[in-house]
Computed example of a mutant assay.
Amino acid sequence: MKADPAVQRRLLDLAQVDAELSRVTHRRRTLPEIAEIAEAEKQFRAKQDALTTIETTLGDLNREVKRQETEIDQVRAREERDRKLLQGGSVGAKQLTDLEHELATLGRRRGALEDDLLELMERREAVEADIQHARVALDKAQEALSDAARRRDSALADLESTETKRTADRKLMTGQFPEPLLALYERVRKQKNIGAALLQSRRCGACRIELDRNAFAKVKESAADEVIQCEECGAIMVRTGESGL
């Protein structure tokens, strides 16, 4: 295949645009913010679960406190009834003894219940403090996730802008090439990712392999408008004054 040397040199500009587009695609897949978001989401879910667990514990304690308070109220009501009976003076000696014994028992029961209630309330206070800390931790996790998402979106927007501009540039550039030359370039690029590269100091700019003596002699003897491909990678080797010919 033959093509004007000046047209062949313009393949280097096209290859540069394609390289930039490839970098955009690669960067879009490998943005550090993507991994950061995944970790931030993991931390956020962990903080959410921790808060839910603590809130469940608080709910259980609140129910236990209410149950304990209800039982204490019942004991106090029983004590109040017994005291009124004693003060009324209308009970017999045996019933009086039974009431006094029951009051003593109720007093001990109330004391034990009140001690248990105090312990429950102290535990509840500690859990409420834990909830405050857990909510602060969750807020920080949410903030970290939101920040990473904002930075990802900003990076993606920049990449989108670059891709749009360079895609438009590429569309204009491809119209400058003969169809056979462009078809060869596109075919090689699809297979090897690089369609054309500079032959520089006897080295292919695509695969970076130096041409052996025979291959270099063949290139040197070729006409200037001959389209030459690298024997190793297939890329079109564009010859300029830097090629060492």
Rank of each mutant, 00 (worst) to 15 (best):
residue 80 E to Q: 08
residue 114 E to G: 03
residue 85 L to D: 10
residue 140 K to D: 11
residue 135 R to C: 04
residue 130 D to S: 08
residue 138 L to E: 04
residue 118 L to S: 11
residue 78 R to W: 04
residue 123 R to L: 13
residue 144 A to E: 12
residue 117 L to P: 00
residue 89 G to T: 12
residue 84 K to L: 07
residue 147 D to S: 08
residue 104 A to G: 07
residue 123 R to Q: 12
residue 99 L to T: 01
residue 147 D to R: 10
residue 128 E to A: 03
residue 118 L to Y: 07
residue 134 A to W: 01
residue 127 V to A: 07
residue 97 T to A: 15
residue 84 K to Y: 12
residue 131 I to D: 04
residue 140 K to M: 09
residue 80 E to A: 08
residue 148 A to V: 13
residue 79 E to F: 05
residue 148 A to Q: 09
residue 105 T to G: 09
residue 130 D to C: 06
residue 113 L to S: 03
residue 148 A to P: 03
residue 113 L to F: 14
residue 146 S to V: 01
residue 99 L to D: 11
residue 132 Q to S: 09
residue 89 G to F: 13
residue 145 L to M: 05
residue 90 S to N: 15
residue 137 A to D: 15
residue 127 V to M: 03
residue 115 D to K: 15
residue 81 R to F: 05
residue 99 L to M: 05
residue 105 T to C: 09
residue 117 L to T: 00
residue 83 R to H: 04
residue 89 G to V: 07
residue 147 D to W: 02
residue 88 G to I: 07
residue 139 D to H: 01
residue 113 L to A: 03
residue 106 L to S: 08
residue 143 E to S: 12
residue 144 A to W: 05
residue 128 E to Q: 03
residue 109 R to T: 13
residue 86 L to D: 03
residue 131 I to L: 03
residue 147 D to L: 05
residue 140 K to I: 14
residue 139 D to E: 02
residue 131 I to M: 00
residue 135 R to P: 00
residue 131 I to K: 04
residue 95 Q to Y: 04
residue 124 R to N: 01
residue 95 Q to P: 06
residue 109 R to I: 08
residue 90 S to M: 15
residue 106 L to V: 05
residue 93 A to V: 15
residue 104 A to V: 09
residue 92 G to I: 11
residue 78 R to D: 15
residue 80 E to G: 05
residue 97 T to N: 14
residue 99 L to H: 06
residue 99 L to C: 06
residue 102 E to C: 02
residue 146 S to F: 12
residue 131 I to W: 00
residue 83 R to L: 02
residue 103 L to I: 01
residue 111 G to A: 11
residue 131 I to E: 07
residue 102 E to D: 13
residue 134 A to S: 09
residue 107 G to R: 15
residue 125 E to L: 12
residue 93 A to I: 14
residue 79 E to A: 12
residue 134 A to H: 04
residue 150 R to V: 14
residue 87 Q to A: 00
residue 136 V to G: 02
residue 140 K to E: 14
residue 97 T to K: 15
residue 90 S to V: 14
residue 145 L to D: 01
residue 91 V to E: 06
residue 136 V to P: 00
residue 117 L to I: 02
residue 114 E to T: 08
residue 84 K to V: 01
residue 117 L to Y: 02
residue 82 D to S: 07
residue 141 A to P: 10
residue 101 H to M: 11
residue 113 L to P: 00
residue 78 R to V: 07
residue 146 S to H: 10
residue 82 D to H: 07
residue 150 R to C: 03
residue 94 K to N: 12
residue 135 R to N: 11
residue 139 D to F: 05
residue 127 V to F: 07
residue 121 M to G: 03
residue 122 E to H: 08
residue 111 G to E: 15
residue 79 E to T: 02
residue 119 E to P: 00
residue 107 G to M: 09
residue 82 D to A: 11
residue 140 K to T: 13
residue 133 H to W: 12
residue 144 A to C: 05
residue 149 A to F: 02
residue 149 A to R: 04
residue 147 D to P: 06
residue 122 E to L: 09
residue 139 D to I: 00
residue 92 G to L: 07
residue 123 R to C: 00
residue 139 D to N: 05
residue 132 Q to D: 01
residue 123 R to P: 10
residue 141 A to E: 11
residue 150 R to E: 05
residue 118 L to P: 01
residue 78 R to Q: 12
residue 117 L to V: 00
residue 141 A to H: 05
residue 132 Q to V: 14
residue 106 L to D: 10
residue 82 D to R: 05
residue 125 E to Q: 10
residue 102 E to M: 15
residue 94 K to S: 15
residue 150 R to T: 12
